[in-house]
Amino acid sequence: MTDTRDRTVPVFRTEGVTRVYKTGEVAVHALRGVDLSLVEGEMVVLLGASGSGKSTLLNILGGLDQPTEGRVFFREQELTRVSDRALTTFRRDHVGFVFQFYNLVPSLNARENVALVTEIARHPMRPEEALERVGLGHRLDHFPAELSGGEQQRVAIARAIAKRPDVLLCDEPTGALDSATGVQVLEALTQVNNELGTATVLITHNASIRRIAHRVVVLADGQVKSDERNTTRVAPHEVSW
């Protein structure tokens, strides 16, 4: 399968997105007016130091959180000021998530963790197919506790892509992994991006990963500090850290 999407149409568009967290007396400004737009099929790396607002932005894009101010659009649909039910439908139909700590359900095996999503998706692939795509066709019946960290993260990726999402949002997917295992995970993500054309946003604080992306956005203090396009991309196995 190859990418047939129009790489000029924006998937996500944000206008002055601000997010303030209040804990007790203190107000923390996680995002201060972010304007950003992401196009179809693009692989974007979001870089930034801890506390720069990367995760908050990703959560807002994925409909896990709502901005305090500003607007967010997915294609033509506005994601801000909509009901919880609408956000749930949006996540269910369009978004795949990959988290740093995998967030697998410990009491379900690999196949069942993927099935958790395919059972409620509209046009899912079979769980087995999704797991084969990430190179885990041989570990279908293993429980999370029986899998290595890299394998667990690949199950999480399979779970994210099995619904054929329009966007894949990955929060530090290699953060808990060593270099070699991390490369395997990145390869799985790149492969999905190439073959399915899924727009992918990948958060990392690891600058060496930037080279595998089409585009690199750097956040600092809740604002976009730079937004650059990579002229040459490298394959994940050429990256090391």
Binding site: R85, R92, F97, K163
Partner: peptide, 12 residues
């Protein structure tokens, strides 16, 4: 796990 189920699209 409740958070995860919500994230992957299960309704309340």
């Amino acid at each position: 796990q409740i958070g995860l189920l919500k994230a992957v699209g299960y309704g309340t």
